[in-house]
Nucleic acid binder design. Structure first.
Length: 193
DNA sequence: CTTAGGATCGCCT
DNA sequence: GGCGATCCTAAGC
């Protein structure tokens, strides 16, 4: 294992764990891309045996990163317009990951505002498409290690209070409670019921 | 506050 | 050919 891929370089998160565990562990961690980003306040887990997952029907050209090594990115184009960021987890070949749905913007506010075309902090990174636009994430950073530049993953403080509920924007497995959030955060893409 | 429609295109059957 | 792990705007209550 290279130094850059030790657990410490990944904020101590075990990306070999099942995706719901990783999704919970990521709440409160800080993700930066070239120094721009913030605190993860909302995630969703997806798994190979999950009808809502891109990997449910097996490996394809698009979802190949999800079957690659854990601790890497999977960035795909949604609705022909919006990029979405996932963190691959489980062992290589499994096909599981965590969708990053919202950040509390902390670093590079001016750059994020310029990229987003507006200054309301609550609208910079509150949604998977919005945060990718704010952090300039696209195909160029697909399937890259999260333990190496331009990515930087920093540990959460610890003791965060979490909430959970059904995932958003899907039509299958709509009752699976694999959406996780930081309780009370103003930066969620949608409130939890 | 909630809902509806349109934008826009890569991916898979 | 149909369909999204979305977002924005406008309109209704």
């Amino acid at each position: 294992m290279r130094i850059s891929e030790t657990p410490a370089a990944l904020a101590g998160i075990d990306f070999g764990a099942p995706s719901p565990e990783v999704a919970r562990a990521l709440i409160g961690a800080i993700i930066l891309v070239d120094g721009v980003g913030g605190r993860i306040v909302e995630t969703e887990a997806y798994d190979r045996a999950d009808p809502a997952s891109h990997t449910f029907a097996g490996p394809t050209r698009r979802n190949a990163p999800m079957f690659g090594p854990p601790g890497h990115s999977y960035i795909y184009l949604s609705y022909g317009m919006h990029w979405c960021l996932n963190f691959v987890c489980r062992e290589a070949g499994h096909g599981a990951g965590v969708l990053i749905r919202a950040l509390e913007p902390l670093h590079g506010m001016e750059l994020m505002a310029a990229r987003r075309g507006q200054t309301d902090a609550r609208l910079l990174c509150s949604g998977p498409g919005r945060l990718c636009q704010a952090l300039a994430l696209g195909s160029a950073l697909n399937s890259m290690s999260l333990a190496a530049p331009p990515f930087l993953l920093l540990p959460r403080a610890g003791g965060e209070l979490l909430v959970a509920g059904p995932r958003i924007g899907i039509s299958k497995a709509i009752d699976v409670p694999w959406r996780f959030g930081l309780a009370g955060s103003r930066f969620l893409s949608k409130p939890f019921r």
